[in-house]
Nucleic acid binder design. Sequence first.
DNA 1: TTTCCCATAAACAATC
DNA 2: GGATTGTTTATGGGAA
Length: 596
Amino acid sequence: MMQESGPETKSNGSAVQNGSSSGSHLLECGSLREARANGEAAVDVAPADLAHAQQQQALQVARQLLLQQQQQVSGIKSPKRNDKQPALQQQQVAPQQLAFQQQLLQMQQLQQQHLLSLQRQGLLSLPPGQPALPLQPLSQGMIPAELQQLWKEVTSAHPAEETTGSSHGSVDLTTATCVPSAPAKTSLLMNPHASTNGQLSVHTPKRESVPHEEHPHSHPLYGHGVCKWPGCEAVCEDFPSFLKHLNSEHALDDRSTAQCRVQMQVVQQLELQLAKDKERLQAMMTHLHVKSTEPKAAPQPLNLVSSVTLSKSAPEASPQSLPHTPTTPTAPLTPATQGASVITTTSMHTVGPIRRRYSDKYNVPISSADIAQNQEFYKNAEVRPPFTYASLIRQAILESPEKQLTLNEIYNWFTRMFAYFRRNAATWKNAVRHNLSLHKCFVRVENVKGAVWTVDEVEFQKRRPQKISGNPSLIKNMQSSHAYCTPLNAALQASMAENSIPLYTTASLGNPALGGLASAMREELNGAVEHANSTESDSSPGRSPVQAVHPVHVKEEPLDPEEAEGPLSLVTTANHSPEFDQDRDYEDEAVNEDME
DNA sequence: TTTCCCATAAACAATC
DNA sequence: GGATTGTTTATGGGAA
C-alpha cells in the first residue's frame, strides 16, 4: 500500500504541478474545482474535489437547463408553438396554463437536476462494467422509448395540436432539451429498455398493463411501495393501488407530458454526462496504461491487474506484464472507478508470482488508507495489495484481540483479508517469515501454546522517522502522499457513500477491528508526517521526535552489525531497517487449503 | 553509476 | 521423516 502510494502520489504530485504553478495542493484543488465547475475536462483533478466539482457542475447544468427551458418556452419553442398556435387556441390552452406548465417544468427540472447531480457523483466512482446503483432506478424509471411512445400517445390525443404529426412531437422532445438531439437519439438506441419497449409499445393501455402482468414487481414506476413517477413518490400499498394511482394521477394530460419531457431531458443529460465520464475514464485508463507500459512503468492499479493477469505463465516476461510498482493513489480508486475491470481481469486469470517493488517510504501513508478503504475489494479481487509485508503483518497482529498472533494465524489473516494471498502460499509465506525475522518491530514471544508474534510499536515508529530523516526527498514524498491521501479518501468516501457502496472506512465504523486497523494505519501515517515535518524543520537528525521519546535507540542488539557501523549507524540502520523489509512468497500449489 | 530498499528465492537449523 | 517455524544470505530490480 505504502509503496504503491508512492508512485501514485508522485504521479499526482506532478499532475498538480502541471496544473498549478503555485505548488500548493489546496490551491490546486481550488483551481481544479473551478475548472470542473466551468465544465472543463480537468484531467488532473484532485479526488477530494471531485464531489464538490460534480455538484457545482450539476448545478450549472441545472441552471443551463432552466435557462434553456425558458428559452424554449419563450423563444426556441415559440416558433413551433406559433405554427401550432391556432391549434393550441382551438384547444383553449390558456396562457395561464402555459405559464403554469413552465413553472412546473422548471420545478421538475430543478428537482431532477438535483437528483442528477447526486446521480452523477455516484457514477464517477462506479466501475464501468457495473450498473450505477443510484442510477439504476432512475434509468428504469426513464425509458426513453416509453416516453416517446407516451408522447406519441399524448400528441395523438390532441389531434388539433398534432397537425404536424407524431414525428414532430418526437422531434420536439429531443430538441427541447439543452443538449443536441444526437445524444437523445443515441440514448434511445443505447437503452436496452428503449428497444424493447419500442417493439412492444403500440398502445398506451397495453404498454401500461402488460409489464404489470408479466412483471408485477418490476414496474419501472413502482418500487418499494412508492410511485416512482418523477416528483410523485406517492405511497401505494400494493401494485393494484399503484395502478390505480398511476391511472388517476398520471393520466395523459399536459402535466404528465411536461413531466415526461423533463424526464427526457434528465435522461439525456445523464447519458451525456455518462458519456463524458466514460470518455474521461477511458482517457484515464489509457493514460495509466501507457504509463505502465513505459520502460519506467509507473505502477498503476490497472497495470497491476494486467500484469497479474499476464504474469502467471511468464512472470517478468515483459515490462507490461510486470508492474513492479503498484500504484497507490489510484489504488483506493481502483475499486470504485475501475473495480469492475480489475476484478474481472483478476478473477478471470490466475495470479502468479509477481515481483513488485514497494516503496515503503511512499506507501506508508497510502497503505493506511488503502487497506482500510479497499478491504472488501482486496478480499474478493485477486489483486496484490499495495502494502508491504511488514505493514500487513503488523496490521494482522494489531487487529488481533491480544495483539499477538502465531505464524499460522498471520497466514490465515493474509488469506482471509486478501484474495491475492490465497495463491502461491509457499512464496508469500516465506516472505512473511522472512519479514518477521528481519524486522525488529516484530517480536517473537514464547507462549504456552508456542511462539506468538507481537509488534514493537516503538521500533515500528522508530524506523520511519529515521528513514525520512536520512533522505530529505522522502519527506516531501511523505507529505505529498499524505496531502493527496486525505482528499482522495474524502472524495472516495463521498462518492461511495452516495452510491451506497460499502467502503471499508464506512464499514469500519461498525467494525472495531477494521476501524482499529484504519486508525492504526492513519496513526502511522500521521506519525510519519509529523516526523517528516519535524525533521524537515529541524535539520538535526539527532533531535527527531522519535529519538527524543526514545533516546536509547541502541536497541536490544548492540552487536547488531547494522548498528555497529558508527555514529550514523542509527540512521543507516533505520533506513535499512528490516522492519520494512517485506517479502512475498508465492507457491504454485493451491493455497486455499491453507486457509483457515 | 551508485546507493538504497524491497521482493524473491533458497539454504539451513530447530521444533513440532 | 515430514512439515512447520525461524533465521540468514544472496540476488534481481526499481527508484532516487
